[in-house]
Amino acid sequence: MLTIFGYRASINVRKVLWLCEEMNPAYRMENWGGGTRSTSEPEFLRLNPVGMVPAIDDAGFVLWESNTILRYLAASRGRKDLLPDDARLRASIEKWMEWQVSDFNNSWRVAFQGLVRRNPDYQDKEVITRSVAAFSDLVARIGVEIDRQGGYVCGDSFTLADIPIGLSLHRWRALPAEKPHLPVIEAYYERLCSRRGFQMHGLNGGP
């Protein structure tokens, strides 16, 4: 039995939950973080010494870091449609996953904390405006790539790259700020909305 440790409102936990819906493995959820059990407790730190969610226990194999978990689960379950064996195709998918947790996330962190979380440490309006603009610029660039690729981030079919990118785009659409109208992104978002995993852990999972 696969166990997922985390809380459902976390965007990184929702990546793993969405993938599980795509693959239909049996799993159980154990709540940690986000106001549930503290991830600084020794029990959790034995799973992940840096104290972050998600973590998983797959029949005794413990792993943490959300995008690494996605790659492991897809590969271990033989889902070559989501993560091919071919080194070049696989690298094309993985580069978007790595970019999502670095440059893409950094672009929206201030705007999200200030406008959605209402974090008092992120209330400088000028800095928020710059964050929204940077976020929107990167979303527009993703739209160009989706259009060039044929409908999804890495081609004309859904792959592992669409999970982290799709959840970040959901966060962009949820920002209560003026944003450009991007038809390719809207069409892509509608395609994601047809997937049960996104319905459950994107649309209903929060921004």
Rank of each mutant, 00 (worst) to 15 (best):
L182N: 03
I165S: 11
E190D: 14
G150N: 12
C154P: 04
A187F: 03
H170T: 00
L169I: 15
A161L: 04
K179R: 15
L175Q: 02
Q149G: 10
Y189H: 13
G166R: 10
D162V: 13
D156W: 03
S168K: 13
E186N: 12
T159C: 14
I185G: 10
P183N: 09
A187L: 08
Y189I: 02
P176N: 02
L169E: 05
V184I: 13
T159G: 05
Y188K: 05
G166Y: 08
H170E: 05
A174M: 09
L167G: 04
Y189E: 05
W172A: 02
F158K: 01
E190P: 04
H170K: 11
R171M: 04
I165L: 14
R171W: 03
L182I: 02
V153C: 08
P164Q: 03
L160H: 09
F158Q: 01
E178L: 09
R173Q: 04
A161H: 04
A174L: 07
A187P: 01
L175P: 02
L160S: 06
I185S: 10
E178N: 10
R173D: 00
A174P: 02
P180E: 03
G166E: 12
S168M: 14
L167Q: 12
E186H: 13
I165F: 10
W172C: 00
G166V: 06
L182Y: 06
Y189D: 12
Y152P: 11
A161C: 06
L182W: 10
V153E: 05
I185L: 14
S157D: 11
E190R: 15
D162P: 13
G155R: 04
P164C: 01
C154E: 05
H181N: 12
R171E: 00
L160V: 10
S157T: 09
V184D: 06
L175V: 00
E190S: 13
Y189K: 03
P183Q: 09
D162Q: 13
P164H: 08
S157R: 15
A177V: 00
P164S: 05
W172V: 01
P176C: 01
G151Y: 12
C154F: 05
V153S: 08
E186P: 07
K179W: 01
Y188W: 08
Q149T: 15
A174G: 11
H170I: 01
E178S: 11
A174S: 14
S168W: 06
V184R: 14
A187K: 11
C154H: 01
G155Q: 06
I165H: 12
D156R: 15
Y152T: 04
G166A: 07
D162E: 14
R171V: 00
L167C: 11
L167E: 05
D162R: 11
L167H: 15
A177G: 00
A161N: 08
R171K: 08
T159Y: 06
A161P: 13
L167D: 03
P164V: 02
R173A: 07
S168P: 04
I165C: 15
K179D: 00
K179S: 04
L160R: 06
A177H: 00
R173Y: 04
G166K: 05
F158M: 07
L175R: 04
L175W: 03
W172R: 01
L169H: 10
I185T: 11
K179N: 02
L160I: 14
A177N: 05
E186D: 15
